[in-house]
C-alpha cells in the first residue's frame, strides 16, 4: 500500500480577481513521478509555490509528507527540494561555491558537504566547470546546476518546475535519467511541471493536466489517451503497391461497417472508422487483387490529449 506523499484538497489561490489555481484536488504517491502539465499561465508554478510554502493558499488544504502548509513550511523545506523555473545562482560565485552555500543552509556538516558537492556536480556533468563563475554559464548549464542544487539535499520529495527548459537533447536525456533514478533508487517522489508533453511522458507514471487553474485530466497517460479517444474516430493508414489500387477497392472499403471515409493520395489510403477494422480491410484488398505493403493504426493518443486539453483553452 503506497503512502500518499503529496495531497491537495480544493487548493485555491486567487490574485485579486484572477484565480490562478482553482480548487485543485489530487494525490501523489511515494516514489511516483508525476507530470504536471499545462499551457502557459495554467497555474503550475503557483501550485508548486504553495506546496513549498513560498506563497500562501487562499483556501483549501495542501499537505506534503503529512505536514500541512503553509504552517509547517520549514519542515517541508527540510525534506523537499525545489527547482524553480528560470533558476538563478549567484553570478560572482563558482558553481562549487553556490552549491556549498546550499549545503550550509541545509546544515550538512562541513566534512560531508565538500564531497557531496563534487559528487552532484559530476552527476549532472558539470565537473569540469565546477570552479567557473556561474555568471559565465549558459542557460542549459544553469539548469543542470539547478538539478544538482536539488540533489545535494537528498530530498524525499522533489518539485521540479520545467526541469528541461532550455536544455539541449543530450542534457534532456541526462536530466530525465537523473529524475528516473531518484524515483527508482531513492524512492523520491517527484512532481515535475512542463508544457512539453512529448518530452516528459516517457518517465511519468501519472500526469495531471491543468488549464486555467483547473485540473482537467488526471491519471496515467494510457488512460488519458483512451479517454480522449472515446467517441472519436480511428485512422488506419494503408500503403499499397504502386498502381494496384482501383475504384472498386475504394467502393468496397467505403461499404465496410463503421468506415466513415476513405482518402486516397497516390497509392496510400487513409481510412477513418469508428473501430479497428484492419482484418476486414486486409481481406477486401486481397479480394480485389491489390498488393498490400503496409497497414497501421495511427497512434494518435498523445496528439489527442494534447489538442483536447491544451488547445481548448
Amino acid at each position: 500500500m503506497p503512502d500518499t506523499v503529496i495531497e491537495l484538497d480544493k487548493l485555491t489561490k486567487a490574485y485579486g480577481e484572477t484565480i490562478a489555481v482553482n480548487e485543485l484536488s489530487m494525490q501523489i504517491e511515494q516514489g511516483e513521478i508525476f507530470g504536471f502539465l499545462g499551457p502557459n499561465g495554467a497555474g503550475k508554478t503557483t501550485t508548486i509555490l504553495m506546496l513549498m510554502g513560498l506563497t500562501e493558499p487562499s483556501s483549501g488544504i495542501a499537505k506534503v509528507a503529512g505536514y500541512q502548509l503553509p504552517r509547517q513550511g520549514i519542515k517541508i523545506r527540510r525534506l523537499a527540494g525545489y527547482l524553480p523555473e528560470n533558476v538563478g545562482f549567484y553570478d560572482d560565485m563558482t558553481a562549487y561555491q553556490n552549491l556549498l552555500y546550499t549545503a550550509r543552509l541545509n546544515s550538512i556538516p562541513r566534512g560531508e558537504s565538500e564531497n557531496k558537492v563534487t559528487d552532484v556536480l559530476a552527476a549532472v556533468g558539470l565537473k569540469d566547470v565546477s570552479d567557473k563563475k556561474v555568471g559565465k554559464f549558459s542557460k542549459g548549464m544553469k539548469q543542470r546546476l539547478g538539478i544538482a542544487d536539488v540533489l545535494i539535499k537528498e530530498p524525499s520529495v522533489a518539485f521540479l518546475d520545467e526541469p528541461t527548459a532550455g536544455v539541449d537533447p543530450e542534457g534532456v536525456k541526462l536530466i530525465l535519467g537523473l529524475i528516473r533514478n531518484l524515483s527508482e533508487e531513492k524512492k523520491t517522489t517527484v512532481m515535475l511541471s512542463s508544457h512539453l508533453l512529448y518530452q516528459v511522458q516517457r518517465i511519468c507514471h501519472r500526469v495531471g493536466i491543468i488549464a486555467k487553474g483547473r485540473l482537467v485530466a488526471y491519471g496515467s497517460i494510457e488512460r488519458l489517451g483512451k479517454e480522449a479517444l472515446k467517441g472519436g474516430d480511428l485512422t488506419i493508414e494503408v500503403q499499397l503497391a504502386e498502381k494496384s489500387e482501383s475504384r472498386a477497392l475504394l467502393e468496397d472499403l467505403r461499404s465496410l461497417p463503421s468506415v466513415k471515409d476513405v482518402h486516397r493520395s497516390g497509392s496510400a489510403l487513409s481510412v477513418r472508422c469508428g473501430e479497428d477494422v484492419r482484418p476486414l480491410i486486409a481481406k477486401k484488398i486481397v479480394e480485389q487483387g491489390a498488393q498490400l505493403l503496409e497497414m497501421k493504426l495511427r497512434d494518435s493518443s498523445l496528439e489527442e490529449i494534447y489538442t483536447r486539453y491544451f488547445r481548448e483553452t
Binding site: 520549514i74 527540494g81 545562482f89 549567484y90 543552509l105
Partner: peptide, 14 residues
C-alpha cells in the same frame, strides 16, 4: 531579479 531568492527561500530556513 536574479532568481536566487526563490532558491534561498526554499531552503529549510524561516
Amino acid at each position: 531579479a536574479s532568481g536566487t531568492m526563490s532558491r534561498l527561500a526554499s531552503q529549510p530556513i524561516h
